[in-house]
């Protein structure tokens, strides 16, 4: 009897809660968590990083409560389509391929990507020159598209998280790895783990694969895209963006 009463009370409470949130519905944001300094997990399990701060700042502009939903990278778009969350704030580049599946806001940052190798490494970065060279990238990224297109004869290894790529690079299982330059600097090269490694070659250039900056993905046709674009402009204008940017990076990563 008491159990039944408690159950009913909880159910009633849940219902009122559901009713109240329906007024200003929370924005569920898909984030990753293993892509420092954009998103990473602290020892106590909370998420932090540029993307995370960005998500909260944008929610605030939209005057909606933010609910962060963690998702491993290769399931990011499928989970958005499956309605597990409403927007992806996880350093996702805007590409033609992805636009077939989802809608995007305007970009919120744009940084180039570059290879990383051991200081003393030397490769001829051509199709033949990289034959058999072990290149590691995160699965389901623009970088996977890039290496598979330009270096199809390389031994391309796909990883679930960027942290695993770095682990294997330091362990010597990879000759090269490909990453966003800022992510690579703050997440690897400037850390003790990255000692003995440096950038290799120039910034990559292939808009077809690499896209035109990083945006916020939403379901196709969702008007949220326009709202988010407006919110990005607002935080650019009122200095919120700069505050967050300066917390993580020495330069403005918005790009031109």
């Amino acid at each position: 009897m008491t159990f039944k009463k408690t159950f009913l009370a909880v159910a009633a409470a849940a219902m009122t809660l559901a009713g109240s949130t329906a007024v200003a519905e929370a924005l569920r944001v898909g984030v990753e968590g293993a892509y420092a300094p954009f998103s990473k997990k602290e020892a106590d399990g909370t998420l932090s990083g540029f993307d995370i701060d960005m998500a909260y700042a944008l929610c605030q502009k939209l005057e909606r409560e933010c609910v962060l939903v963690e998702q491993e990278w290769d399931g990011m778009i499928p989970a958005l389509i499956a309605n597990k969350y409403d927007a992806i704030v996880a350093s996702m580049s805007i590409t033609e391929d992805r636009k077939k599946k989802v809608g995007f806001s305007e970009k919120y940052y744009h940084t180039p990507s570059r290879f990383i190798a051991r200081d003393d490494a030397s490769f001829e970065m051509t199709r033949e020159g990289t034959s058999g060279v072990k290149i590691g990238v995160l699965r389901g990224t623009t970088l996977q598209c890039y290496v598979e297109k330009h270096f199809p004869e390389a031994d391309i290894k796909l990883y679930n998280t960027q942290e695993d790529v770095f682990a294997d690079l330091t362990a010597g299982r990879l000759d090269l790895q490909l990453n966003n330059t800022l992510g690579a600097l703050e997440g690897f090269l400037n850390t003790p783990q990255g000692k003995g490694f440096s950038f290799y070659g120039e910034d990559l250039d292939d808009p077809a694969c690499l896209g035109e900056g990083v945006g916020i993905a939403v379901r196709k046709g969702d008007p949220l895209a326009a709202e988010l674009s407006a919110a990005i402009e607002e935080i650019r204008a009122d200095g919120t963006y700069k505050t967050i940017n300066d917390k993580y990076f020495p330069v403005d990563i918005y790009g031109n």
């Binding site: 290769d74 778009i77 499928p78 796909l158 990883y159």
Partner: peptide, 23 residues
């Protein structure tokens, strides 16, 4: 497939990753 081998599931995940598919 979690340690980069292209086994059956690895290929499945590669296909999903390459074309942003779910199923």
């Amino acid at each position: 497939s979690t340690v980069t081998l292209q086994d059956l599931l690895g290929v499945g995940r590669w296909l999903n990753g390459r074309y942003y598919l779910a199923y």
